[in-house]
């Protein structure tokens, strides 16, 4: 028994350490959506606190509704008035410029004045929309929906506008950026990170359900490890007028995307960088299937769901390498587990 004593002490210590290694954020809120993080590793709880702090820091810099945020100040600023920005706004602005060029302007954070016009901005989401905006207003705002109207001065860390009404919104890239930042904080852990539906299983495998864009439940299940998945869809925020669905993703012509037969209504992009996944998912919806094939060259894959409005059906296409099970088999698997 005496010889066993050290082993007992070690065993007890191990059991306690192991049971203290798993931590969950619960279902928390950020960017007007949810986040949920599970960590396995030493001091998981303090890591979660750091993560929460980082997420709040990002939101406080890039929110379009928090009046002290950089983005709010930029959107309110007049021509030639430099606005001092924080590190997150700076990083997001630089990445946005890169992705704006890369996607041939399909991913465009400067489209925000049109998002407001179409009543998809957070302050207008509660409005009941009965008619679409006049065509002339759309054309007018298209002129200011350009990233070229914002100038970054890295030295002074400021952004200056060249049109009073030009406005920015990093909403199409923020969740992906946040995942990239959280990834840096969980290097020593096994983690499942879910920020508003952008998901990263880190150092572990995960089965990720893809929301069905037209029915309740899932379209299918993607098997993933150490890669991020981000989905954009015309069903996330929309309203229907005279039988036409108008979604929050605004196309290059100033009208919502996915209005036509055989348009893409959902794009899930998988890859290394959350920001890219996020922006490319939006760009695929805006630019269509032919353009979508370009993402493979960038090292990204996608599951795209296309509508056939005449038949009332949806079908899917896979670009690159994805382990995907469509819903029937996915449900069967789910039930049998």
């Amino acid at each position: 028994m005496k010889k066993l004593k050290p082993f007992l002490v070690i065993l007890v210590a191990l059991i306690f350490i192991m049971s203290g290694c798993t931590a969950s954020s619960g279902e928390n809120l950020i960017f007007g959506s949810f986040y949920s993080i599970q960590l396995k590793g030493v001091s998981a709880r303090s890591a979660l606190k750091k993560i929460h702090k980082t997420l709040v820091e990002i939101e406080n810099q890039i929110s379009t509704v928090i009046e002290t945020s950089d983005v709010y100040k930029i959107n309110q600023a007049k021509v030639g008035e430099p606005v001092k920005i924080g590190k997150h706004t700076l990083e997001l602005f630089k990445a946005s410029m890169e992705l704006y060029e890369l996607t041939d302007k399909a991913f465009n954070p400067a489209v925000y004045p049109l998002v407001e016009l179409w009543s998809f901005s957070p302050d207008k989401l509660y409005n009941e929309v009965e008619e679409i905006p006049p065509h002339e207003d759309i054309i007018e705002l298209l002129q200011i929906a350009q990233m070229e109207l914002f100038q970054l001065d890295e030295e002074s860390q400021t952004i200056t506008k060249s049109h009073d009404n030009a406005k920015l919104d990093f909403g199409g890239i923020a969740k992906g950026y946040a995942i990239d930042k959280v990834k840096e904080l969980v290097k020593d852990y096994q983690a499942l990170i879910n920020i508003g539906g952008d998901i990263l299983p880190y150092s572990r495998k995960a089965n990720i359900g893809v929301t069905h864009p037209r029915e309740n439940g899932l379209f299918g299940v993607v098997n993933l490890k150490d890669l991020i998945i981000s989905t954009s869809g015309d069903y996330e925020r929309y309203y229907i007028i005279d039988g036409t669905r108008y979604s929050h993703i605004i196309g290059k012509n100033g009208y919502p995307a996915s209005l036509n037969e055989f348009d893409i209504i959902s794009a899930s992009v998988i890859g290394e960088k959350g920001m890219y996944c996020d922006a490319l998912a939006t760009a695929i919806i805006v630019s269509g299937l032919d353009w979508a094939e370009n993402i493979e060259q960038l090292g990204y894959s996608a599951l795209v769901i296309i509508q056939n409005t005449t038949k009332g059906e949806e079908y899917y296409n896979i670009i690159g390498d994805i382990q995907f099970e469509p819903s029937r088999s996915a449900y069967r698997k789910n039930i049998n587990l």
Partner: peptide, 21 residues
């Protein structure tokens, strides 16, 4: 209102991407 309602089940998948989030 700061609320999240979620369904948990034994056959839970690990997460859902997309949706009104």
């Amino acid at each position: 209102n700061g609320l999240v309602v979620i369904i948990r089940s034994d056959n839970d998948i690990d997460g859902i991407t997309g949706g009104r989030q």
